[in-house]
Structures are given as structure tokens and as C-alpha cells.
Design a protein around this nucleic acid. Structure first.
Lengths: 235, 235
DNA sequence: GAGCTTATGACAACAGCATTGACGTGTGAA
DNA sequence: TTCACACGTCAATGCTGTTGTCATAAGCTC
């Protein structure tokens, strides 16, 4: 795996706007996402990307050190889009919900892009970046690192844990049963099959159950449970 | 993705024992695992495998339809080894613990093999097989399908959920604190970074916490929690 | 505007990849 | 002895990422 360094000498290079210059980090990344969305992750090769750009494949190496590097840039692009215009309120519960919604929406718009996280050698790195982006939100809310990690992971686990059981099994109160589907997506979206394809195997087995129950899980319940845990840890 | 069929015409073929015959499904799979263990998942190519076998790469296609097919056979091999000599007791809690231990031990013996589950196109299929193997255990214990799925997923979620918080945060009783590390591994091993590399990104962030806390999670606690849920669902 | 530096894309080439087909050889069965 | 065929080898195809060379054109300095 290539170490994730897009060094200064590549990034901050002079980009003359002559008529022959058609490529840029932006156009390459956007074309790559478009290619993935249209033809799947397997179709994303340097050569096909070059063809889609109307340029020689080797020209791409002017902007990215390797194909792995390009793939990671795609994940960065997705995260960047999700965080576009995001402002931390300082309330980590609200911020977590917001960023969850945004990331999910982003991957909803580019479903095939999630396959990137299943990449043989860079898959881990992709998920690390998503996790770190979310941790960044919690840090921005003023939470210390250790606590942010703890909360995020508990959050994800709770989301999946609640998802595993339908409303009847959980015996949720009526208020939770009526919870908005969008709220559920906010919590589950941060680690949904869409964004983390390799855990989809498990989730898929439960898809019927979840659909039948109408996703009756309220983010508020999750956050309350997490807050209770954190309070217990503090006290 | 090639459909997982190693058809009769390939499997049950006459295998004359002339001196020229050096290959077999067994030797290929074992050599492949050895190659992965020694040089990593990326080194597992048909050509290198052929070289390691001392045979022409194309000969491998006499035994497997494609490279994807071979990769899936490796996961099947791991599951097969884990289940070797396993007998269902009918007590799903005991069976689950046993199979958890076995699968984890198997991947401990072949750490690099877990990378197979991170494969770009077959990654999902690998994890589906592991999950299905565990579900098979629960079914063998007499549990109906729906319930088995529910229990397995709750089991995994609980394992990860507890793992997310250290002993202090959970305020576990002293008995749990003293729980055997092996017992913890039995529960966590079924969905550990070893067996599900793409969720390792999250887990890795917590590795320090977990190590510091000494994995103080007792499988009994997990199973009790699950049993309580299931009981609630039944009643 | 002349001359220099340099960014940039094209081109050709290389090594490695999965996969396929033809071929010969040796084996087990009839 | 004959025959079918299992099985490994060989050669070839078309894909992949990657690299080095080269011509060109943009921008900078004077």
C-alpha cells in the first residue's frame, strides 16, 4: 500500500491555463467517480480513466503518484463533499447526527463509490478516513480524543446493535416506533452497507427484518444510551 | 464475481496417480495459503502460485474456474478447518462459543489470510461464508433460521459494543474483569479485525484501549444479554 | 519580444496480470 | 493392444500499472 502522501511538489504545482491543459485533480477525481458510478468499481482503471478523460493514461501520474493514491483521493472527495458547508455547533449529539446524514446522503448519491472501501489493499485506509472524519467532528465539538473515539465507536455499535433486533425484540417505547426514518439513517448511515460494503454481508441477512420493522430506531435513544455510558465512565 | 460453483465435472474427476501428476485441489489451496501467509494477499496471483507449485500457472485452471474461485476456496478451507471435528451439542451458547474459538484460532494461525476478505470484488462473498458457517452452527442446535440470524447478529454487535468501552466505562463486575482472555477471543474472534479486515479501521483506533483494559469481557455476559433479548422477544 | 525554465500531455515500452487454446504425453480402462 | 482422456506445458491474447523520453506551449525574466 502506498503511503498516503500527496506531497507539496505534486499538489501545489503551477497549473498554467493553456489550451492544451485539460487535466486537473478536480476533473480526474470527478471523472473517476462518474466512471465508477456508471460502470462499477472494477471498471476504474488508469487506462479507462484516461480514455474517459480523453487523455493518455500516463498523464494521470502527473497528478497522482499511483492508482492507490487516486483511489484514496476519491474517498477524500466523498468526505469533503459530505462536510461541505458543515459547521460544528459544539453539541456533539447534533453534530454527529448532521455528519451522519451528510455522509450517508453523499454515498446515496454515489452508491458504487462505496465499493472502493472493499479494495484489496487500500480498503482499510478508506474506512480509516471516514472514521477519522467523524472523529474530527466530535473533536470540533470540544471532546478530547479518547472520549471522541469511545463515543463514536459506541455510537456505531449501538446503531448496528439496535438494527439487529426488530421493534418487537427490543420492546421499544411507542415514541421510538414512530421515529423518523431519516433519523435512523443518520445513525446507521455512518457505518451502513453503503459506506462499509464488507460488513454488508451481515447486514444483508437482516435486511428483511429491518425493512419489515420500518427502521424503528430513534437516534435520540442511541445518543441517550451513549451519554449514559459516558456519564457512567466519568462518574 | 464468479458464482461459487465448483461443479461435478471439475471436482469429481478421475485423478490418475502417474508421476507427472503433482497438483491437486489440496496442494493448490495449501500452497496458496502458505503464499499468502508468507508474502501477503497481494502476492497471491495465479502466476506466482504456479511458480510456488513448480507448475505452469495455466494448470491451476484445471482445478479452479478462475482466480476468484480459488480465493473463495481459500475461505472455504479456513471455515472447513475451523469446523473440523466440531460436533454440535445442541446448546447454542456452548456451540457458539466453540465455533467462535475455532474460527479465531484458525485465522490466528493464518493471519494474512484475513486479507482475502478485503478483496475488491469477492470480499463480500468471503464474509457471507463466515457468517453462514456460524449460522449453520446455530441451526444445527435446532434454532429456526430467523432466530439464528437474530442471535448471531446480536452476538456480534454485543461483542463489538462491549469492546468499544473499557472496563471502567462499562463498570463491569469483578468477575468479568477476571474473565479469561481466551473467552473474550471466542466472542470477539467471530468478527475481529483478523477475520473482517475492513472493520479493522475502527477497531484499530481502539486497540490501545482494549489492550490496556485487558479485554475484560466475559462471553457469559454477552450470552446472557443475548438470551435476555431473545427471551424478551419470545415473551 | 528573446530566451529560458518548466509544466504537461503523447508516445512507446516493459513487466506482470488472468485467461484460453492447442498440443503431446502418459495412464487407466476396455 | 487400443483408445479415451486426464493433465501439465507452451504460446499467445489482451488487459493492467508504471516509467522514461520527447515535443510543445505556457509563463517568467530580462
Amino acid at each position: 500500500m502506498t503511503e498516503r502522501v500527496v506531497p507539496e511538489d505534486l499538489r501545489r504545482r503551477r497549473r498554467p491555463t493553456r489550451q492544451g491543459t485539460v487535466l486537473s485533480e478536480r476533473t480526474i477525481v470527478e471523472t473517476a467517480l462518474h466512471l465508477v458510478a456508471q460502470q462499477g468499481a472494477r471498471a476504474l482503471t488508469v487506462r479507462k480513466l484516461g480514455a474517459a478523460l480523453g487523455a493518455d493514461p500516463s498523464a494521470i501520474y502527473r497528478y497522482f503518484h499511483s492508482a492507490d493514491d487516486l483511489l484514496l483521493a476519491l474517498t477524500d472527495e466523498m468526505i469533503g463533499r459530505a462536510q461541505e458547508g458543515f459547521r460544528a455547533t459544539g453539541d456533539w449529539r447534533a453534530d454527529l447526527q448532521e455528519i451522519g446524514l451528510r455522509i450517508h446522503a453523499c454515498y446515496q448519491a454515489h452508491p458504487q463509490a462505496a465499493l472502493l472501501a472493499a479494495h484489496r489493499t487500500t480498503g482499510r485506509e478508506h474506512e480509516v478516513r471516514v472514521v477519522e472524519a467523524i472523529l474530527g467532528v466530535l473533536r470540533a465539538a470540544g471532546l478530547p480524543d479518547g472520549e471522541a473515539v469511545r463515543i463514536y465507536h459506541a455510537f456505531v455499535d449501538q446503531a448496528l446493535g439496535f438494527a439487529a433486533l426488530d421493534a418487537a425484540a427490543l420492546a421499544l417505547p411507542a415514541a421510538a416506533q414512530a421515529a423518523d426514518l431519516a433519523v435512523w439513517r443518520a445513525s446507521y448511515g455512518t457505518l451502513s452497507p453503503d459506506t462499509h460494503p464488507n460488513i454488508a454481508a451481515t447486514a444483508r441477512l437482516l435486511a428483511v427484518d429491518m425493512r419489515r420493522s420500518g427502521y424503528p430506531v430513534a437516534l435520540e435513544l442511541l445518543l441517550d444510551a451513549i451519554a449514559a455510558r459516558v456519564a457512567a465512565a466519568d462518574g
